[in-house]
Design a protein around this nucleic acid. Structure first.
Length: 875
RNA sequence: GGACGCAUAGCUCAGUUGGUUAGAGCGUACGGUUCACAUCCGUAAGGUCACAGGUUCAAAUCCUGUUGCGUCCACCA
């Protein structure tokens, strides 16, 4: 055994401990010493993006998942926690493009596809290493032998096979859709690449032509050349007569065919209450087209110019075309009104250019299409039913509603992206021919689709692609790891990607395997800085987990992310909080140091030698507390109440064990106390291990037990009789009262005291505690315990349960009297209110017996206390 | 505009299906400490549970409304 330092220095131990765990191979479920029938427990790590180092949100995720994994490992589960990283298509490409533009002033088109991708991989390598290093520093017990990446070869294959299967069964189709197009970058933008800018804009109100009955309002008159409908609200009395009719109009010299449609989404109060519908050049208008089956007329080209079949508007930039249209409307006296409004312009996040919505060919997953393998249900129906039937549950529950709401409104999912970094779509073209295949075609001049898949396509397959699908799925049967570990038990992730990720995983897993990907979804909140702001690099308010680990140790960082948080709610984190948990870790360290030095015989850690018939009040008290703790912590963790579990552990460790029992054991260093301390400390380390694996493992190594703490089994309940365990609290209260008096100088520090304790039937039992009372630095010299009696006049009295006690000494009467007077006022009010309640016949009639009894007892206690206090004050 | 969440001590937050006088940590004040730990120990002060109604014998807890803050979605034709 080595000498332990006075304070715990994490950096002296953590690396070596983690290496020992790795060497033991016990992160791998195949190596766990378990019977064959041991139940499985699986979590697949939500793969971090390789674009950036981990932040504290990731650290929270790792802490929570490692806690679950370590807890279940201790409970005898065959636990698999499977690591991986995500290529994060758009995010990664953006980062690299930006970087290359800054350093070399070039766009991706300047490099070409192959060279650009080479640059991306070059960038991604080191970041990925950093991330893996960070994960290990957090103490994560991941099975590294099963490491995955969303773009490694097995996952590429899984993606291609999945695409083909979904295509073959009609779940994937090719269609048109309006996308965000930046005319300057010559590229489509995803929704999150679109920025919005508030700006003043001219709103023009006009009619297409003199013979058209309805006036419309728009900020973009030039797009009206592509109008094919006017939408009005079905409730709108002004226009009801026109609904369903079709008009041929002459708009600034161009012929238009306009159908009048009714749609509830039209705001009757805005403009004229009628919307000119341009399906080809507006996101919302495209949805009108989908619903009402309208024609599509394109009038703007990808260069941001007017199309070339528009007479004198042909080839003009849109801004010029707009002026021309407005002028023309003025000449024709069709312009009714022109007002300035503020609107929210969509612009390119990169160059600020106004976005031009344009229709283009894309690949989709049809979420409403009935599929044979889902029994004629659609992906949407299957994914909703699984949650409605409780096959997958959400923690906290409210996210179930959010999931279902979102699912119900889900439209077809566009899975193609016009970027290069990602899974290239496994579709090949030759003229008009299309081939969808999981392998590249040989020969011919097949051209592969240049687009790549949405990053969530591969992420949606994550629980099963990581477990060896499709190779481990033969004739509809799961084999190998897939059979052993799927469905997984928990998906633990931030609530911000509930819709992006969870819903996709549900749909794709139900499609591929016909089962849910996980039985529980635990959603954590965001980690904010101490002022409640989102941590971000640009603000510079982010705390780097590695810095925090260097300063305070991994265990302290983990505790600060596990205690004081509730599922689904954001939490604030500053260094003060982490420091306070560092203090706790050090406290545990010193408890260990003391116990190890006080117990030279290490067998007390190996065997449980406690003789329950030879125990004192304090022994039974601490043992009952510990027994309760074991139960509580297990329950709390299995209900995902990590914070409550941690608080219970901390309270026991710091308050019950260190501040009371350890002090008592110093007074009475018997072999029985040694056995109890040994038993409690050993098992306490097991309970703490899921929270703070490093310090507990270091201490464990001092106990003389061969097996690592990592696989130590969760303690059993002790079968003791704890009936009078709570009696010890009387001793505690008495001591607390004495400390209280001393601290307020109502009793001089050196003053010895006498106590009279009126204990009724418990007098005899309490008698055995007298020695203890005297020893515990109370300054008690004489203690007399009597069975009955009335309160003497010159004393300070306290009441706990049915026991009263009186302390005698040189007491500062003024302070004591004031204190008592205050207490009397409080107590009188409380008694008054409680009496009224108890006198209420309805309360007696309706409240449960247990409550009534408790309230009556309470009243009796208060009255006794009041009597004692009154005697005191009247003296 | 829609949905969801939050509002409890100076600060950060707990408060499990309504039921003792609403709790913890940090901070503050006061006192202590050579005996595992100053990254320590003890004691105290501090709350109209956002506001207004309602249900109930009983509301921080359930319902309705109001205010303030936050998140997500849809976006202003």
């Amino acid at each position: 055994m080595t000498e332990l330092a006075k304070t715990y220095e994490p950096q002296n131990y953590e690396a070596a401990i983690y290496q020992r765990w790795l060497d033991s191979g016990l992160f791998n479920p195949d190596n766990l010493p378990l019977p064959a029938e041991a139940p499985n427990y699986t979590i697949i790590l939500p793969p971090p993006n390789i674009t950036d180092k981990l932040h504290l949100g990731h650290a929270a995720m790792l802490a929570i998942e490692d806690l679950l994994i370590r807890y279940h490992r201790a409970r005898g589960y065959r636990t698999l926690w499977l690591p991986g990283t995500d290529h994060a298509a758009i995010a990664t490409q953006n980062v690299v493009e930006k970087l290359l533009y800054q350093t070399e002033g070039k766009t991706r088109h300047d490099y070409g596809r192959e060279e650009f991708l080479r640059r991306v991989w070059e960038f991604v390598g080191p970041t990925r290493e950093t991330i893996l290093h960070q994960i290990r520093r957090m103490g994560a017990s991941l099975d590294w032998s099963r490491m995955t990446f969303t773009m490694d070869e097995p996952r590429q294959k899984a993606v291609r096979v999945m695409f083909k299967q979904m295509y073959d069964e009609g779940a994937i189709y090719r269609g048109e859709r309006v996308v965000n197009w930046c005319p300057r970058c010559q590229s489509t933008l995803s929704d999150d690449e679109v920025d919005y800018k508030e700006q003043p804009a001219e709103l023009y109100t006009f009619k297409y032509s003199a013979d058209f009955p309805i006036a419309i309002a728009t900020t973009r008159p030039e797009t009206k050349l592509g109008d094919t409908a006017v939408a009005v609200n079905p409730q709108d009395k002004r226009y009801q007569q026109y609904i369903g009719q079709t008009y041929q109009v002459d708009f600034c010299g161009q012929p238009l065919t306009i159908k009048i449609i009714a749609d509830r989404s039209v705001d009757m109060a805005f403009g004229t209450g009628a919307v000119g519908v341009t399906p080809a050049h507006s996101m919302t208008d495209w949805q009108f087209k989908e619903k009402h089956d309208l024609a599509v007329v394109k009038v703007i080209t990808p260069d941001g110019l007017m199309a070339d079949n528009l007479g004198r508007f042909s080839g003009l930039p849109v801004a010029e075309a707009r002026q021309l249209v407005v002028a023309e409307l003025g000449q024709r006296q069709l312009l009714i009104q022109q007002t300035t409004i503020t609107n929210n312009l969509s612009i390119c996040y990169r160059c600020g250019t106004a976005i031009e919505p344009l229709p283009s060919k894309q690949w989709f997953i049809g979420v409403d299409r009935p599929l044979d393998r889902l029994g004629g249900r659609s992906l949407k129906q299957a994914a909703m039913a699984a949650v409605e039937q409780g096959q997958t549950k959400f923690v906290p529950e409210r996210f179930q509603k959010r999931y279902l709401d979102w699912m119900a409104n889900l439209h077809d999912w566009c899975i193609s992206r016009q970027i290069w970094f990602g899974h290239q779509i496994p579709v090949w073209y030759r003229g008009e021919e299309i081939m969808v295949s999981d392998t590249a075609p040989h020969g011919g001049d097949w051209q592969q689709d240049p687009d790549t898949l949405d990053t969530w396509f591969s992420s949606g397959m994550w629980t099963f692609s990581t477990l060896g699908w499709p190779d481990n799925f033969v004739d509809g049967q799961k084999i190998g790891d897939l059979a052993r570990f799927h469905p997984t038990q928990v998906l633990e992730t931030g609530y911000d990607i509930l819709t992006l990720w969870v819903s996709r995983m549900m749909m794709m897993t139900l499609f591929a395997l016909g089962e849910v990907p996980f039985t529980d979804v635990y959603m954590h909140g965001l980690v904010l800085d101490e002022h409640g702001k989102k941590m971000s690099k640009s603000k510079g308010n982010g705390l780097d987990p590695l810095d925090m680990i260097e300063l305070y140790g991994t265990d302290a960082v983990r505790l600060s992310l596990l205690i004081g948080i509730t599922p689904g709610n954001d939490c604030r984190l500053g260094t003060a909080k982490i420091a306070s948990y560092r203090n706790f870790v050090n406290k545990l360290w010193n408890i260990g140091r003391y116990i190890l030095s006080a117990l030279p015989d290490k067998t007390v850690f190996v065997h449980n030698n406690i003789d329950l018939t030879q125990t004192t009040w304090a022994d039974r008290w601490i043992l009952s507390r510990f027994d309760k703790l074991v139960k509580t912590v297990g329950q709390r963790i299995s209900r995902y109440e990590f914070s409550l579990a941690g608080e219970a552990l901390r309270d026991f460790t710091w308050n019950d064990l260190a501040d009371w029992y350890l002090e008592i054991s110093k007074m009475e260093p018997t072999s029985q106390k040694a056995n109890i301390l040994g038993y409690i400390f050993k098992n306490l380390l097991i309970l703490w291990q899921p929270f703070i694996p490093f310090v507990t493992e270091v201490l464990w190594q001092q106990l003389g037990i061969d097996q690592p703490l990592l696989i130590a089994q969760w303690p059993e309940q002790l079968s003791g009789d704890w009936a009078d365990a709570e009696s010890f609290t009387i001793v505690q209260q008495l001591i607390t009262e004495i400390r209280n008096l001393r601290s307020h100088q109502q009793i001089a520090p050196n003053q010895n005291l006498s106590a009279l304790i009126i204990a009724g039937q418990q007098a005899e039992a309490l008698n055995s505690q007298i020695d203890l009372l005297k020893k515990l630095r109370t300054g008690l010299e004489q203690v007399e315990i009597v069975a009955t009696g009335s309160a003497p006049a010159d004393s300070l009295a306290g009441v706990c349960g049915q026991i009263s006690f009186y302390l005698f000494g040189q007491i500062d009467q003024t302070g004591a009297q004031a204190k008592i007077a205050k207490k009397i006022v409080e107590l009188t009010t409380a008694i008054e209110q409680l009496s009224i309640r108890l006198a209420n016949p309805e309360f007696i009639a309706k409240a449960p017996k247990k409550i009534i009894l408790a309230e009556q007892n309470k009243l009796a206690d208060w009255q006794a206390e009041l009597t004692a206090l009154n005697q005191q004050i009247t003296k």
